[in-house]
Structures are given as C-alpha cells and as structure tokens.
Deep mutational scan, measured.
Amino acid sequence: TFEVERIVRKKIVHGNTSYLVKWKNYSSKDNTWETEDDIRTKYGDLVDDFEK
C-alpha cells in the first residue's frame, strides 16, 4: 500500500487540479501527479495543510 509523505506542488490544467505527491519510503524521482479528488478522498488533511 502506498502512503503519501507530503504534497510537493500543485498544478491546474483546464480547470482540473492535480498535486505532485511524494510517497513515503520512495525517492523523489518516484513522485507522481494525482488528481485532487483521488488525494482528497484519503488524504484531505494533507491537501488542506498544503493549501494554507
């Protein structure tokens, strides 16, 4: 199971928000862009903290 360590960046393309996710126990080269809906479902607190 993958676990988010932190959110690195945010991008908005054509009105759709995605977050660059750093995965726990993986290197930064393994970071992936994930949709806001996918990340918010399980890691809403991390998204809220990133947006502060």
Rank of each mutant, 00 (worst) to 15 (best):
E51L: 06
K10D: 01
L46G: 02
K42D: 14
F2M: 15
V13D: 07
S18L: 15
H14K: 13
V21W: 01
D48L: 10
V13N: 08
L46Q: 05
E51D: 07
K22S: 05
N25I: 06
R9G: 15
K42M: 13
G44R: 10
V8A: 01
N31M: 15
V8H: 02
D49H: 11
G44Y: 08
S18T: 11
Y19T: 01
I39D: 01
S28K: 07
I39N: 03
D48F: 09
W33R: 00
T17E: 02
R6F: 14
R40V: 07
K10N: 07
R9E: 12
Y43Q: 03
G15C: 06
W33E: 00
H14N: 15
Y26I: 14
E3H: 07
Y26N: 11
V4M: 08
F2Y: 13
Y43S: 04
S18K: 11
N31Q: 09
G15Y: 03
K52L: 11
H14T: 06
V8P: 08
E5V: 04
T1A: 13
Y26R: 15
K29G: 08
D38Y: 14
S18Q: 14
V47K: 02
G15L: 03
L46S: 11
F2A: 14
T17W: 06
T1D: 13
G44V: 07
K29F: 09
Y43H: 07
F2T: 11
E51I: 05
T17Y: 04
I7M: 01
N25V: 04
K10I: 05
D38F: 15
I12W: 05
V47Q: 03
Y19K: 00
H14C: 14
D48W: 07
D38E: 14
K29N: 10
N25M: 06
K24T: 05
R40H: 03
T32F: 03
I7H: 00
K11L: 07
E3V: 10
D49S: 10
L20A: 00
G15K: 06
D45S: 12
E3L: 07
F2K: 15
I7F: 00
I39Q: 00
F50R: 04
L46D: 04
D49V: 10
T41N: 11
Y26C: 15
S18P: 04
E3F: 05
D30Q: 13
V8S: 01
E34Y: 11
D45G: 10
T1Y: 12
N31A: 10
E34A: 06
Y19F: 06
D49C: 09
G44D: 05
E34L: 15
Y43N: 07
I7Y: 00
R6H: 13
Y43R: 05
E5N: 02
R6E: 10
D45A: 11
H14M: 12
V13W: 10
G44N: 12
K11I: 08
V4F: 05
I7W: 03
V4K: 00
E34T: 05
V21R: 02
N31I: 08
K29H: 10
V8C: 11
E5Q: 05
K42G: 07
W23A: 01
V4W: 01
I12F: 07
N31K: 06
G15E: 04
L46C: 04
L20M: 07
N16D: 08
D30N: 14
Y43D: 04
V47I: 13
L20P: 01
L46I: 10
I7C: 08
K22T: 04
E34C: 14
W23N: 00
T1L: 12
H14D: 15
T32I: 02
K22Q: 11
V21H: 00
S28C: 15
K22F: 05
S28A: 13
V21K: 00
K52M: 12
K52F: 08
G15R: 03
T1N: 14
Y43A: 12
V47P: 01
E5C: 06
T35Q: 08
K24Q: 08
E36K: 04
N25S: 08
I7R: 00
D30W: 15
S27A: 08
K10A: 04
V13R: 10
E51Y: 05
L46K: 08
E34D: 01
G15I: 04
S27W: 05
E36F: 06
Y19H: 00
I39F: 07
F50P: 02
N25L: 06
E51V: 04
V4R: 01
L46V: 06
E36N: 03
K29I: 09
S18W: 15
D45R: 09
I39G: 00
I39R: 00
W23Y: 09
L46A: 07
Y26W: 13
W33F: 02
D38K: 12
S27E: 12
V13M: 12
V8N: 01
L46R: 03
N25A: 07
E3M: 08
N25E: 09
R40Y: 05
N16A: 12
G44Q: 13
D45M: 10
R9H: 08
T41W: 11
V13H: 10
K42L: 15
L20E: 06
F2W: 14
V8E: 07
W33L: 01
K42E: 08
V4L: 10
D45N: 13
E51T: 04
E36V: 06
K24V: 08
N25P: 07
D38P: 03
K24Y: 07
K24E: 03
E36Q: 06
N25H: 11
D37F: 12
L46H: 05
L20T: 02
G15A: 04
K42P: 03
R6I: 09
E5G: 03
L46F: 06
L20V: 01
T17G: 03
T41C: 10
G15N: 06
W33G: 00
I39L: 15
N31H: 09
I12Y: 06
